[in-house]
Design a protein around this nucleic acid. Structure first.
Lengths: 327, 327
DNA sequence: CTGAAAGCGCTTACAG
DNA sequence: CTGAAAGCGCTTACAG
């Protein structure tokens, strides 16, 4: 140390008030000259904080995961924290992420790939590990959860379709995917209460990738009861549906209406021009990061938070209706 | 410590050979019972290694960045390392990533968003910081660089187009984007040497997002010399071109051929069915991680490596030609 | 094969 | 306002 003690340098570095202006200036000067940068591991060991949080995203076949990661990064960076990333396997597991949390490489985790029945994840959460679930719900797990208002989104689409006279409605979803299940429930219930319950022969379950949409069209068109509308649990599947329709010369929207869910940017491109439900990912990321930081500080409330953020129906060409009708 | 010394536990944890079988078994037993997990910061401080590396990717508007991140994650995880992520700003800068490297939060960096003239990045590299450039080249920077064989890709496309009788060829590129510049150079040179130099009125520069493709079509169609082919520096721009053509009732491939670069998954979807040049991202990620780890170990050679990995032309419907002609 | 001890580089009461 | 000292939790020569 050129002149002063280690303690004083540390106080300058951390902006601690107990340093005289002239000492501070002198130390800052030398810091700049030497280009000294404090060691993060040492600070982390001493403070018991890595200043880093992790995010677990689904396998990036689904472009939605990219949006999620970008928004989480944005809000993590805003709090001066670093972001580590793990890609979950197809079952949503990311053991390396949990291990990193246990060994305090990260201070907390935002988990966006959860499904039901994840024993390792649930054990860590029950042991008090700071983990926030984002975008997915898991039954019986006692931690903060931030998700879209999916049932409400499903009801909104049901209202829209019935209002515009659609009756032969198909649903393409996935069983393991909690947002899809919630959308489906809201959608089914509202259709039923409007006197137009869904015909089970028009319900198809798949893995929610692009190819599932193509497969769904083939299955629905080979059945007796062709639909006039297909509502898909995510946009990616809807693109598969639209492309299959294109290949089979099924005209959209004249012969078939198609609706997706998420409103990823591709849905605005002319090739798809997809009516879909916007998800407020930026808000979900913001709230998730805030709740996680509170949990890391030990400031969470007695019972876990369950936040539901509302989306919005975005009407585009895949369901075009007469312009005087409001959406 | 129940029974043995801290040193022995540490040796068991690290798999050090100097532990008797029965001691090892006893310690392992207790470790499992108590669920003890060693603290990563303490290990990092002692070993001077964070076991974590960072990747800097471009703003994720471009889906290509997602693929890159996924592949880098794959290879980083394979080496038992953690991955931190930073999104670069529009100019390719990521000061937080450089800071994290300086304070040893990460052991090294894979930089995929570099452009020319990045003083901070170059200063760190010249000071010996372990940074590998991936997918982009920067003039005069002395570190390992792993990129696609872009000039060769450009030549390959030139050969293909001339071979199939295309003559009124347009190029849509970007000035700050090194792969684009290299593709352009290979493309131009080969066209010239085949006696069909590009007409400068058919060259358009933009920022290489979707909207640039739409803008390019508008500009080219308002000029005197409409092209019969548009070659784009990346797939995203090509989608913009294809959608603009769709809106203007320009038929592809009858009236216009369109070619992209990268072969991201969307290019295989029926809506675009885009002829493009495949980039071996997985290999680029593998080589980048290997070179970075060598550099972290101080085992790099005297002069920086410049690797070029070859891609491959993927012919699809956006340039359909008679089936008997080979691609 | 095992243990006692030093030290990685910080931060933070504590004493002055 | 400043400094000396302790301690965060590991790993690794060193001695036996």
């Amino acid at each position: 140390m050129s002149g002063v003690s280690q303690s004083t340098v540390s106080r300058v570095l951390s902006g601690h008030p107990n340093v005289s202006a002239k000492t501070r200036a002198a130390v800052t000067e030398i810091l700049n000259q030497t280009g000294f940068v404090p060691n993060a591991s040492a600070r982390a060991m001493r403070t018991q904080r890595s200043r880093s949080i992790g995010v677990v995203v689904s396998t990036p076949v689904n472009l939605y995961g990219l949006e999620v990661m970008g928004q989480v990064h944005e809000h993590v960076a805003r709090h001066g924290l670093r972001l580590s990333v793990w890609l979950a396997d197809v079952d949503g597991n990311a053991p390396d992420a949990l291990q990193a949390l246990r060994e305090r490489s990260v201070d907390g985790l935002i988990y966006t790939a959860a499904v039901d029945h994840m024993p390792e994840l649930e054990a860590d959460i029950n042991a008090g590990a700071p983990i926030v679930l984002m975008g997915r719900t898991v039954r019986g797990v006692a931690t903060d959860t931030v998700a879209g208002a999916n049932a409400q989104g499903g009801r909104r689409v049901a209202d829209y379709l019935i209002q515009h006279g659609r009756r032969d409605i198909a649903w393409v979803g996935g069983r393991a995917f909690s947002p899809g299940r919630e959308i489906e429930q809201g959608f089914r219930n509202r259709l039923a209460s409007l006197g137009a319950p869904i015909d089970e022969s028009r319900v198809v379950y798949g893995d929610l990738f692009y190819a599932s949409g193509e497969a769904a069209v083939e299955q629905l068109w080979n059945s007796k009861s062709k639909p006039d509308t297909i509502f898909c649990a995510n946009d990616l599947v809807a693109y598969g549906v639209l492309d299959a329709a294109r290949k089979s010369n099924i005209r959209v929207p004249e012969d078939l209406w198609v609706i997706g869910y998420n409103n990823i940017p591709i849905s605005g491109w002319a090739a798809y021009d997809l009516t879909t439900v916007y998800q407020p990912i930026a808000d979900m990321a913001r709230v998730s990061v805030e709740l996680l930081l509170q949990r890391i500080e030990g400031k969470q409330g007695p019972s876990p938070q369950r936040r539901r953020l509302e989306g919005k129906l975005i009407v585009r060409g895949s369901t075009a209706h007469a312009p005087h009708e409001s959406s």
